[in-house]
Design a protein around this nucleic acid. Structure first.
Lengths: 200, 200
DNA sequence: GTCTATATAAGGATAGAC
DNA sequence: GTCTATCCTTATATAGAC
């Protein structure tokens, strides 16, 4: 364990991330964040002025990863199916490390006071996938489908278990480790599914 | 339009459903519910005592549909793939009529004060699908896969666009009608996907 | 049953001492 | 920079008149 002492600002950001990600904006309390950070509530305002501003900082930091940047990956000269396989591995890996990310993001964009944050989402991903798909489709290497629908399916398949995690833990009487193992297994399963869907 | 006057209790429940579904428990205000119902805030407490009790009433009423009861459908003697097709049609239809349902349910089960509500979910669906799958698998009519993983994929594919609706509307510069058309189209696309996944 | 007025509590934000 | 104490707004809940 690294025992490097974090600055107060860093401690606050770390605590805010934990609380906001878990409880959402409306469900979070400044007092909870202060408690987790191990400091006083007044200091939160000293550093970040308001709950809104602190939330925005956390959102900005986390949001980049939700729609991962696949720039380099998608410009490689490899089959489309392989690109999707790489996406699945990378994205599921990210979700295993940030299990609250999907609910956090989807909650925020659906929040009546936070809908402006939609503009912050880096949504190049869908354009990259679509473009990459059409190149490959013209070569006849991939089945005909609607890439927009395909991306929604892909993301939905990856994300759903993390959104429904409390239900799944209850259903399977499982703990976090069992869940993670199920997700590791899921990576292979999803790769198989998309291969079946994409292969002509 | 039917002009039948609702009872006060019914008006409250209708308004509470609208507000809770849209804004979630933490994001909802009793005042908003009273305004939508067109009555006074004090009446909410007269009829339902507390915000918690009112929320529970709404949750109980809505929850049945999230994991639809497919009892009759799944006991029919038809191919497994056809059962899944019927599920997709029925579920997407339900979601088109209740676009907030997925976020509402997933938000609630992830809420730190509402996790007990998980017990209320009618989760027979997954058992029915798994059982139905194995019968068909033994006959060699369906590809080998993990039914639990398959159900998660199926639900994820159906639900995702409704969770991400504000993002999609922004991306495609679309309105509600366009979104609904995209979902109608999606029914066919998803039926195609599951056929490819399930057919040996 | 329905309303107005008010009590009570929670939570975000600030003042001021150190 | 960090704390304690306090302010002020918002929101749930209740009292009491009609």
């Amino acid at each position: 364990m690294t025992e490097i002492e974090l600055s107060t600002e860093e401690k606050i950001l770390k605590a805010a991330e934990e609380v906001f990600m878990r409880d959402g904006y409306d469900g979070s309390r400044m007092q909870d964040i202060a408690d987790v950070a191990g400091i006083n509530k007044a200091l939160l305002h000293y550093y970040f002025r308001s709950k809104d501003k602190l939330f925005e900082k956390v959102f900005d930091a986390k949001i980049q990863s939700f729609f991962p940047k696949m720039g380099e990956k998608f410009s490689q000269d490899i089959p489309f199916v392989d690109k999707i396989h790489i996406f699945i591995e990378g994205y599921m890996d990210l979700l295993l490390k940030n299990p609250y990310l999907p609910l956090f993001v989807l909650n925020t964009v659906n929040n009546k006071d936070k809908s402006a944050f939609i503009k912050k989402l880096p949504i190049e991903l869908s354009r990259q996938v679509a473009q990459s798909y059409y190149v490959e489709f013209k070569k006849g290497n991939v089945r005909e489908l609607n890439p927009a629908q395909f991306i929604m399916s892909l993301m939905g398949m990856c994300i759903f278990p993390f959104l429904a995690k409390p239900i799944l833990l209850d259903m399977f009487k499982a703990d976090n480790d069992t869940f993670d193992k199920l997700m590791e297994e899921r990576i292979q399963e999803l790769k198989h599914y998309v291969t079946l869907i994409l292969t002509p």
